Lab assay of single mutants.
Amino acid sequence: NQASVVANQLIPINTALTLVMMRSEVVTPVGIPAEDIPRLVSMQVNRAVPLGTTLMPDMVRGYA
């Protein structure tokens, strides 16, 4: 089972991601792999991401 990136807090739209906003968790469906967390830092979300939501590739500008 692969860990995915999950929002550690509410992340408002257009917010640049920081390490404290994300955690890794084994979830279904699988989202962005946890090993990509360092790559996600400073990328912006293109929608509001509620606490506990799995980050999907289409939620992060420039990721996919």
Results as ranks from 00 to 15, higher is better:
residue 7 A to S: 09
residue 50 P to Q: 13
residue 26 V to K: 03
residue 23 R to S: 12
residue 11 I to W: 01
residue 48 A to Q: 08
residue 31 G to M: 02
residue 37 I to S: 04
residue 31 G to H: 01
residue 18 T to Q: 11
residue 5 V to C: 06
residue 61 R to A: 12
residue 62 G to L: 07
residue 31 G to Q: 03
residue 27 V to A: 10
residue 61 R to S: 11
residue 24 S to W: 11
residue 19 L to E: 11
residue 57 P to C: 13
residue 32 I to F: 03
residue 14 N to R: 07
residue 37 I to D: 00
residue 39 R to D: 03
residue 39 R to L: 12
residue 41 V to A: 07
residue 60 V to A: 01
residue 40 L to I: 13
residue 57 P to L: 04
residue 58 D to Y: 05
residue 63 Y to L: 14
residue 54 T to F: 02
residue 51 L to Y: 09
residue 15 T to H: 08
residue 52 G to R: 06
residue 12 P to V: 07
residue 59 M to L: 05
residue 21 M to E: 02
residue 24 S to L: 06
residue 55 L to K: 00
residue 61 R to D: 10
residue 9 Q to F: 12
residue 23 R to A: 12
residue 39 R to T: 08
residue 1 N to F: 14
residue 57 P to I: 07
residue 53 T to H: 14
residue 39 R to I: 09
residue 64 A to Y: 03
residue 15 T to C: 06
residue 7 A to K: 01
residue 5 V to D: 01
residue 18 T to E: 12
residue 17 L to R: 00
residue 19 L to I: 14
residue 59 M to G: 03
residue 41 V to G: 02
residue 17 L to I: 10
residue 40 L to S: 00
residue 4 S to R: 02
residue 32 I to H: 00
residue 24 S to R: 05
residue 43 M to N: 06
residue 47 R to S: 15
residue 13 I to G: 15
residue 27 V to D: 02
residue 15 T to P: 01
residue 56 M to R: 07
residue 6 V to E: 01
residue 22 M to K: 00
residue 36 D to G: 06
residue 48 A to G: 08
residue 58 D to I: 06
residue 44 Q to A: 10
residue 15 T to I: 05
residue 5 V to P: 02
residue 52 G to I: 02
residue 61 R to Y: 13
residue 42 S to Y: 08
residue 44 Q to V: 10
residue 17 L to G: 01
residue 46 N to D: 13
residue 29 P to H: 09
residue 62 G to S: 06
residue 43 M to W: 09
residue 61 R to H: 12
residue 15 T to M: 13
residue 19 L to S: 10
residue 26 V to R: 03
residue 61 R to P: 15
residue 30 V to M: 15
residue 8 N to P: 02
residue 62 G to R: 05
residue 41 V to L: 11
residue 4 S to H: 02
residue 46 N to T: 12
residue 22 M to E: 02
residue 59 M to P: 00
residue 34 A to Y: 06
residue 52 G to N: 13
residue 30 V to F: 10
residue 8 N to M: 11
residue 3 A to N: 06
residue 56 M to E: 08
residue 56 M to F: 09
residue 33 P to Q: 08
residue 14 N to C: 06
residue 39 R to P: 03
residue 54 T to D: 01
residue 19 L to R: 09
residue 36 D to Q: 09
residue 32 I to Q: 01
residue 17 L to A: 00
residue 6 V to L: 12
residue 20 V to Y: 13
residue 60 V to P: 01
residue 39 R to A: 09
residue 42 S to T: 12
residue 48 A to P: 08
residue 49 V to Q: 02
residue 46 N to W: 04
residue 54 T to N: 02
residue 4 S to M: 02
residue 7 A to W: 02
residue 43 M to E: 04
residue 31 G to T: 01
residue 6 V to I: 08
residue 6 V to W: 01
residue 60 V to L: 10
residue 35 E to H: 11
residue 52 G to Q: 04
residue 21 M to A: 09
residue 28 T to C: 13
residue 54 T to H: 03
residue 36 D to K: 08
residue 18 T to H: 06
residue 25 E to L: 03
residue 20 V to C: 15
residue 63 Y to P: 05
residue 49 V to L: 14
residue 43 M to V: 04
residue 58 D to K: 05
residue 33 P to C: 06
residue 21 M to Y: 06
residue 13 I to M: 12
residue 31 G to E: 00
residue 44 Q to K: 08
residue 63 Y to R: 04
residue 63 Y to G: 05
residue 43 M to T: 05
residue 56 M to N: 10
residue 16 A to T: 15
residue 13 I to Q: 14
residue 3 A to K: 04
residue 8 N to I: 06
residue 34 A to H: 10
residue 15 T to Q: 11
residue 7 A to C: 05
residue 28 T to D: 15
residue 23 R to Q: 09
residue 27 V to T: 11
residue 6 V to A: 03
residue 56 M to D: 05
residue 18 T to L: 06
residue 28 T to P: 02
residue 38 P to G: 12
residue 7 A to N: 02
residue 55 L to Y: 00
residue 45 V to E: 01
residue 15 T to D: 04
residue 11 I to C: 03
residue 27 V to G: 03
residue 49 V to C: 04
residue 3 A to H: 11
residue 47 R to I: 10
residue 15 T to N: 05
residue 14 N to K: 10
residue 45 V to F: 00
residue 62 G to D: 14
residue 1 N to V: 15
residue 8 N to W: 04
residue 44 Q to L: 10
residue 27 V to L: 10
residue 47 R to V: 13
residue 33 P to L: 13
residue 30 V to Y: 06
residue 53 T to R: 05
residue 12 P to I: 08
residue 25 E to T: 07
residue 16 A to L: 11
residue 2 Q to K: 04
residue 6 V to N: 01
residue 4 S to T: 04
residue 25 E to H: 06
residue 42 S to V: 03
residue 22 M to F: 07
residue 64 A to W: 03
residue 33 P to S: 08
residue 62 G to Y: 07
residue 25 E to C: 06
residue 27 V to N: 03
residue 34 A to K: 05
residue 57 P to S: 14
residue 35 E to G: 05
residue 36 D to R: 06
residue 63 Y to E: 04
residue 45 V to C: 06
residue 33 P to K: 12
residue 44 Q to R: 07
residue 17 L to P: 02
residue 45 V to G: 01
residue 10 L to K: 07
residue 51 L to E: 13
residue 22 M to Y: 02
residue 4 S to I: 02
residue 20 V to H: 14
residue 43 M to R: 11
residue 64 A to D: 07
residue 26 V to L: 13
residue 25 E to N: 05
residue 33 P to M: 13
residue 23 R to L: 11
residue 11 I to L: 14
residue 52 G to T: 03
residue 36 D to T: 06
residue 58 D to C: 15
residue 5 V to Y: 01
residue 49 V to P: 02
residue 25 E to P: 00
residue 35 E to T: 09
residue 52 G to P: 01
residue 18 T to I: 05
residue 30 V to H: 14
residue 21 M to T: 03
residue 26 V to S: 09
residue 33 P to Y: 15
residue 60 V to Q: 00
residue 11 I to Y: 00
residue 53 T to Q: 10
residue 19 L to Q: 06
residue 7 A to D: 01
residue 51 L to Q: 14
residue 27 V to C: 04
residue 4 S to W: 02
residue 40 L to W: 02
residue 4 S to C: 07
residue 50 P to H: 09
residue 55 L to Q: 01
residue 5 V to F: 01
residue 22 M to H: 00
residue 62 G to K: 04
residue 10 L to Q: 13
residue 53 T to N: 08
residue 47 R to P: 02
residue 49 V to N: 01
residue 37 I to L: 13
residue 58 D to H: 08
residue 4 S to L: 01
residue 61 R to F: 08
residue 47 R to C: 06
residue 58 D to Q: 07
residue 28 T to S: 09
residue 29 P to Q: 10
residue 18 T to P: 00
residue 61 R to Q: 08
residue 57 P to F: 07
residue 40 L to N: 00
residue 22 M to D: 02
residue 55 L to A: 01
residue 30 V to P: 11
residue 38 P to T: 10
residue 29 P to I: 10
residue 52 G to L: 05
residue 55 L to F: 12
residue 25 E to I: 04
residue 50 P to Y: 09
residue 29 P to Y: 03
residue 5 V to N: 00
residue 38 P to E: 10
residue 10 L to V: 10
residue 25 E to V: 05
residue 37 I to G: 06
residue 42 S to I: 03
residue 57 P to V: 07
residue 9 Q to W: 13
residue 22 M to Q: 01
residue 9 Q to C: 05
residue 53 T to C: 07
residue 37 I to Y: 03
residue 35 E to C: 07
residue 2 Q to I: 08
residue 27 V to I: 12
residue 64 A to L: 10
residue 18 T to C: 07
residue 16 A to Q: 09
residue 15 T to S: 10
residue 9 Q to H: 12
residue 43 M to C: 03
residue 38 P to S: 11
residue 32 I to R: 00
residue 63 Y to I: 08
residue 20 V to L: 14
residue 32 I to M: 03
residue 3 A to E: 15
residue 40 L to Y: 02
residue 18 T to K: 06
residue 30 V to I: 10
residue 47 R to G: 10
residue 39 R to M: 09
residue 44 Q to T: 11
residue 37 I to A: 09
residue 4 S to K: 01
residue 35 E to F: 08
residue 37 I to M: 14
residue 57 P to A: 14
residue 27 V to W: 02
residue 35 E to Y: 09
residue 23 R to W: 04
residue 62 G to Q: 08
residue 62 G to C: 15
residue 7 A to P: 01
residue 23 R to H: 09
residue 41 V to R: 07
residue 55 L to P: 01
residue 4 S to F: 03
residue 13 I to D: 13
residue 53 T to S: 15
residue 11 I to G: 01
residue 48 A to T: 11
residue 46 N to S: 11
residue 48 A to F: 11
residue 40 L to C: 04
residue 36 D to C: 08
residue 13 I to F: 07
residue 28 T to K: 03
residue 45 V to H: 00
residue 21 M to P: 02
residue 19 L to Y: 10
residue 23 R to P: 02
residue 8 N to F: 05
residue 14 N to D: 14
residue 4 S to G: 07
residue 54 T to G: 03
residue 51 L to S: 14
residue 3 A to Y: 12
residue 7 A to M: 05
residue 62 G to A: 06
residue 23 R to N: 07
residue 29 P to K: 05
residue 30 V to Q: 06
residue 17 L to N: 00
residue 1 N to I: 15
residue 38 P to F: 10
residue 49 V to R: 03
residue 62 G to I: 04
residue 4 S to E: 00
residue 14 N to V: 03
residue 40 L to H: 00
residue 13 I to Y: 15
residue 55 L to V: 07
residue 54 T to C: 05
residue 5 V to A: 12
residue 64 A to H: 13
residue 49 V to Y: 02
residue 56 M to L: 11
residue 26 V to M: 13
residue 41 V to Q: 08
residue 53 T to L: 14
residue 6 V to M: 08
residue 61 R to V: 15
residue 31 G to V: 01
residue 30 V to C: 12
residue 42 S to F: 09
residue 32 I to K: 00
residue 38 P to I: 14
residue 51 L to H: 13
residue 1 N to K: 04
residue 42 S to C: 15
residue 64 A to S: 11
residue 18 T to A: 12
residue 16 A to N: 08
residue 17 L to S: 00
residue 33 P to A: 13
residue 54 T to A: 06
residue 32 I to S: 00
residue 7 A to H: 02
residue 26 V to D: 15
residue 30 V to K: 04
residue 16 A to W: 10
residue 58 D to G: 09
residue 60 V to R: 00
residue 34 A to I: 11
residue 34 A to V: 15
residue 46 N to M: 10
residue 50 P to N: 12
residue 14 N to T: 04
residue 3 A to G: 13
residue 41 V to C: 04
residue 31 G to K: 01
residue 44 Q to H: 09
residue 48 A to D: 14
